[in-house]
Amino acid sequence: MKWRKWNNIIHRDLGYLCFGLTIIYAISGIAVNHIDIWNPSYTIERIQSQLAKPVSKEQLSRATIFEILAELDETGLYKNSFRPDPQTLQIFVEGNTLTVNLGTNTVLQEKVTPRPVLHQMNFLHLNHPKKLWSWFADLYAIFLGALAVTGLFVLRGKKGITGRGAWLTTAGILLPLLFLGLYL
């Protein structure tokens, strides 16, 4: 049949075309699914250390901040500082946030680094770029829909949509409905 030939051609070529983005969405999908137990986009390294000299709460100047940074060998670009409460000083450096406890002279450093590859995948998957990417992602979604529909009619006979395919397709529709029944 002529329509089946075209169906298979569309299914095959869309499959090739969508491969890259499907892999990105699949990996990123698993990563962001478990956002409650880990950070899928950044690694946050926390380092606790003790300052040698006590820092005066009253005389906090830019020079004091640079002394603290020098003692901790922090050479990143200094951005700003903040006092969340009288006991605490926060220092913001490129890629690092230092929280100084002015009572105990302890410092908690939070070094934030984007996870290689995963950060970029999540960036695309979660549509952070917006703009043109939104349209491209819509197009990809349409292609995925077309892939799914054409996939139903690739094979004829026992393994096609009138045989085994019918059972598996029904299961694929029922499974999300089952979860809706359970959780909605």
Binding site: Y42, K79, N80, F92, V93, E94, G95, T97, V112
Partner: peptide
């Protein structure tokens, strides 16, 4: 982004 920390 996390890089916003410390910026205005």
């Amino acid at each position: 982004p996390m890089s916003a920390r410390g910026r205005t």
